[in-house]
């Protein structure tokens, strides 16, 4: 007991120094990230998404669910884009532009919630499996195999379709099946990090497993967590769109996927209502591609070998 407290006291200044090197290491990586045009483009798209979602109420010109009428009292159905209806109206006289703006909120909530859960869950499992090894590792990795063997979209559709259709179920499905990708990569990284001298040093000073894991190993893993998290945002939004498109979305939340389903079943395609079904698709592409861009930039910084 006495020796372990002494160990801690001796290690304290050393630890503070290490923390600053980790912090400055991360900071220099971040600075390099910000010089990468792809990453900057990705981050800009996210920034715009967040701003639009936050100020959606100000940006919307109509209530997305409201049926609009023209001056002559008839429903303003299938209107082309104009000053009054920036992107025209749906076949039931709803404003497409306002739906598009409102959809950004759902994209933001779905994308970020799922991504944070996937990254956190995957990182935790990867850390535990990689660090403790043995039986725990075997069990967790078999679970990962299993999750990857389940067809992703059908699972999400069944989960959302049979239970009460809700956005939460889509997020749950994404998290349940997407964590293994993150966990596997994190685990592999932990296997190399835990052999490093400073981890050994921490162990010698009597640091507990939890301390080594979260103070010494985890910070070195963090960039990978962000990398996989940023890709998960796109996956979650695409999954939500697909589930909504086949008709199991949450009708209360008009998401981009819901808009596309609405357009599809309302014969917008044969009517050639491009203004209705093109914008939501482009919005989805932009947000998903932002994740790819950031992942690409992060990969260049994390694994510079590939850059040459």
């Amino acid at each position: 007991m006495a020796s372990s407290t002494r160990g801690c006291r001796m290690a304290a200044p050393d630890m503070a120094a290490r923390r600053t090197t980790v912090a400055s290491g991360l900071a220099s990586k971040l600075a390099r990230l910000l010089r990468d045009p792809f990453t900057v483009a990705g981050l800009t798209i996210y920034a715009v998404l967040i701003i639009v979602a936050v100020f959606a109420d100000l940006l919307m010109t109509h209530d997305p669910g409201e049926i609009l009428f023209r001056a002559n009292g008839r429903v303003a159905a299938n209107q082309p884009p104009s000053a009054a209806y920036l992107l025209g109206t749906t076949n039931l006289g709803r404003d497409v532009y306002s739906q598009l703006i409102g959809g950004s909120r759902i994209a933001l909530v779905v994308g970020f919630t799922a991504a944070i859960c996937v990254a956190a869950f995957g990182t935790l499992i990867g850390l535990l499996a990689g660090y403790f090894g043995g039986k725990l590792d075997a069990i967790l990795m078999r679970l990962a195999d299993l999750a990857l063997a389940i067809p992703f979209l059908p699972f999400a559709i069944v989960l959302a379709g049979f239970s009460r259709s809700s956005t939460t179920n889509v997020i749950v499905a994404v998290v349940l099946l997407l964590w293994p990708n993150t966990a596997r990569v994190i685990r592999a990284q932990v296997l190399t990090v835990k052999e490093r001298a400073y981890v050994e040093a921490a162990r010698v000073t009597g640091a507990s497993d939890a301390r080594i894991l979260f103070v010494h190993v985890a910070p070195n893993i963090l960039p990978l967590t962000f990398l996989y998290g940023s890709v998960a945002i796109g996956w979650a939004i695409l999954t939500e769109a697909a589930v909504s498109f086949v008709g199991f979305g949450d009708a209360k939340n008009i998401s981009w996927g819901y808009m596309l389903q609405d357009a599809f079943v309302s014969q917008a395609l044969s009517r050639g209502s491009w203004h209705w079904f093109v914008p939501p698709g482009l919005c989805i592409i932009l947000v998903v591609i932002a994740g790819f861009f950031i992942a690409r930039g992060a990969e260049d910084v994390l694994f510079p070998k590939l850059r040459s």
């Binding site: 695409l238 769109a241 596309l260 989805i284 932009l286 591609i289 790819f292």
Partner: peptide, 8 residues
């Protein structure tokens, strides 16, 4: 094209 929803 990888980022686009297939159904779109």
């Amino acid at each position: 094209t990888r980022a686009a929803p297939e159904f779109w």
